[in-house]
Design a protein around this nucleic acid. Structure first.
Lengths: 284, 284
DNA sequence: CATTCTAATGTAGCTAAATTACAAAACTCG
DNA sequence: CGAGTTTTGTAATTTAGCTACATTAGAATG
């Protein structure tokens, strides 16, 4: 836990002199870590042992150890904390907040994703002879994105954001069909039913969804991530970002699994796109 | 600059004994910052002053100061550096790398986005009586996502990922029409032409694209972001993530501009979705 | 190949910083 | 108001880090 926060939180538990120390440190932590215990004591107008006791109270071995801890939390420089947008934020403020919340969400997704599940999902995808991506609402964009990525791999892919089409597609599913479902909550009734239908038709079902959700239970493999829910009105829907990155991960795993010959192919696809573009001025 | 990197870089300039110190520190930096100069000297099998000289060579005041610097760079815990996927990375490795690269890309986008351009874009969007989102290829998913978001605002929105449809839509454009184009490179010929056509038909054109690109020049307002290009084969296409976050930013700006009455409405839309979901078990 | 100079490393002593033990002061509660 | 507890400070001790100097290893030159 962040040392600065810790000090702030313990502020009430400190004695009078200890609080003086805390205030001096909080006022300029960067300065504090460069001070000796003597200078800091003088600045706070307390004795040296008081400073030492203050350090111990924060579960450090002593003053030097405390400085180390403090230095570490300073360096952390707010590593993307999710902050909510306020009604009278400036454009600058809400832009920064949304980007930061998005990064925080990705970080949390990264922490919680299970690499072995990724591996199994890649297994299933590489063995598929047909892949379908299904997403409703906000997740439909993710499904589109996934289609676009896997399309380049030159395997039959399809993508639906319409429940009827999904159901029809499920009925035509075979053993080699892999269906990937995107749903943040994993509680969308229609999608859960689609998953069941797909399985009844012997398709393999991968779901990018919430842990322990109805959808997660209904599929062959659940690839789950913890993404802080957007309790906010100003709905940045971080979950679909995490899903898209997860799609990148799967696509990457796919290309890695397919080996170097396959990657050569991809390079050619990329180059084929160049013709449709204006030349980029070389140099500059 | 990161102290660890600094050590690694200076490795060549060190003397034999200094290098021994460097190696011990690099082997376990976390341990090193807890050691006294004596223990560290013993571990590296050198004398104490050698350790001290080593610290000085890295522009620190001495051993304690060096530890502080080291602690800070450790805390930074690789603050999202873009690292490329290697052919024999494990699932764990490439998953982490892709998430980190994505976060790094968002960070760079955040740094480079122009808040005043955001503000003007929001201006245009709030005054629009019709909004269209256009994207081709990888950006089509972004356009879909944008449609999904703005659709909730109860204004006429459309979305196309097909050039012919885009052109038709442009021809029907009026003064109050705002067209938002998504293109990472800003060099896709078809899209640049669409932008021109739209402007000829008096539509307002906003482009989320690269700075100084043909597309940026052809539109009313260019909302540009620097996103590290994916020179990589394993194409995580970070740009579309940045674009999606930018869409969040615009949507947020939109709701803020529309005021509290409007936000009440949004809440109702969100609640309307609940019926289509399975109940979430309260508590747990 | 020897000699000399320089750079590198270590030893020992010194200084300053941090910690401990204890005593004094302040505060609490009967 | 006084016994007990907590808080704070003083002084002594310990420890860590640094400096000055000596020694050694290595490079360069005759």
């Amino acid at each position: 836990m962040n040392t600065i926060d810790k000090i702030q939180k313990s502020l009430a538990n400190f004695s009078k002199s200890e609080r003086k120390v805390a205030e001096v440190i909080l006022a300029d932590p960067q300065l504090a870590i460069q001070c000796s215990i003597a200078t800091l004591a003088k600045m706070a107008d307390v004795s040296e042992p008081t400073v030492n006791r203050f350090c111990r109270r924060l579960d450090t071995k002593g003053f030097p150890d405390f400085k180390l801890h403090l230095a570490q939390s300073l360096a952390n420089g707010t590593p993307y904390v999710s902050r909510h947008v306020e009604a009278n934020d400036s454009a600058e403020a809400y832009t920064a907040k949304i980007f930061e919340s998005s990064m925080a969400a990705l970080d949390s997704a990264k922490q919680s994703i299970d690499a072995s599940a990724v591996n199994r999902a890649v297994d299933m995808l590489t063995q598929a002879d047909q892949i379908s991506f299904f997403g409703l609402g906000a997740s439909s964009a993710v499904a589109h994105d996934a289609q676009n990525k896997f399309f380049r791999f030159n395997i039959p892919v399809s993508c639906f954001d319409d429940v009827l089409m999904m159901r029809m597609s499920c009925i035509n599913a075979r053993e080699g069909t892999v269906i990937v479902l995107f749903s943040h909550t994993g509680r969308t009734k229609a999608l859960v039913e689609v998953a069941r239908l797909a399985r009844e038709n012997h398709a393999q079902v991968i779901a990018l969804t919430a842990k322990d959700s109805p959808l997660a239970r209904e599929c062959t493999l659940a690839l789950t991530m913890d993404v802080p829910e957007d309790t906010d009105l100003y709905m940045p829907m971080a979950s679909r970002l995490a899903q898209m990155v997860a799609v990148d991960v799967l696509a990457t795993g796919f290309t890695l699994r397919r080996g170097p010959r396959f990657r050569e192919n991809l390079k050619r696809v990329k180059e084929a796109l160049k013709e449709s573009r204006f030349e980029k001025p070389q140099g500059l």
